[in-house]
Amino acid sequence: MTNALDLNAPVDTLAMEFTREFDAPVQALYRAHAEADLVKQWLGPHGLEMRIEEWDFRSHGGYRYVHSTSDADYRFNGTFHTVRENEMIIQTFEFEGAPDMVNIEFMWFEDLGNGRSRLRGRSICPNTEARDALLSSGMEGGMVEGYEKLDVLLKSL
Rank of each mutant, 00 (worst) to 15 (best):
Glu148His: 14
Asp23Cys: 14
Trp108Gln: 09
Asp23Phe: 08
Ala24Thr: 02
Tyr147Met: 07
Leu5Tyr: 03
Pro126Phe: 02
Leu119Thr: 01
Asp12Trp: 07
Glu96Phe: 08
His33Arg: 03
Phe109Ser: 00
Ala98Thr: 14
Gly47Ala: 07
Phe76Ile: 07
Met107Cys: 10
Phe80Thr: 05
Leu154Asp: 00
Val144Lys: 02
Met143Val: 04
Ala28Val: 03
Asn114Leu: 12
Gly141Leu: 09
Thr13Gln: 03
Asp6Ser: 11
Gly47Phe: 05
Arg116Met: 11
Gly141Val: 06
Gln27Cys: 13
Leu48Asn: 05
Gly115Phe: 01
Tyr147Thr: 01
Asp100Phe: 13
Thr69Gly: 05
Trp108Ser: 13
Leu38Glu: 07
Gly121Trp: 01
Phe95Val: 07
Val102Met: 10
Val11Gln: 12
Leu43Ala: 08
Pro126Gly: 09
Leu29Gly: 00
Met16Gln: 11
Phe95Leu: 10
Val26Cys: 00
His60Trp: 08
Arg75Asn: 13
Phe109Trp: 02
Glu87Phe: 05
Asp151Gln: 06
Arg20Asp: 02
Ala15Asn: 15
Arg51Ser: 12
Gln41Val: 05
Phe76Gly: 04
Asp37Ser: 11
Met107Asp: 14
Thr79Trp: 11
Gly121Met: 08
Met50Cys: 11
Thr79Pro: 03
Ser117Thr: 07
Leu135Asn: 06
Glu17Ser: 15
Glu17Thr: 14
Thr19His: 06
Ala34Leu: 02
Gly115Lys: 02
Ala24Met: 05
Glu145Tyr: 12
Tyr30Gln: 02
Phe18Val: 09
Asn103Ser: 15
Arg64Glu: 12
Ser68Arg: 15
Leu7Val: 06
Ala4Trp: 05
Gln41Asp: 04
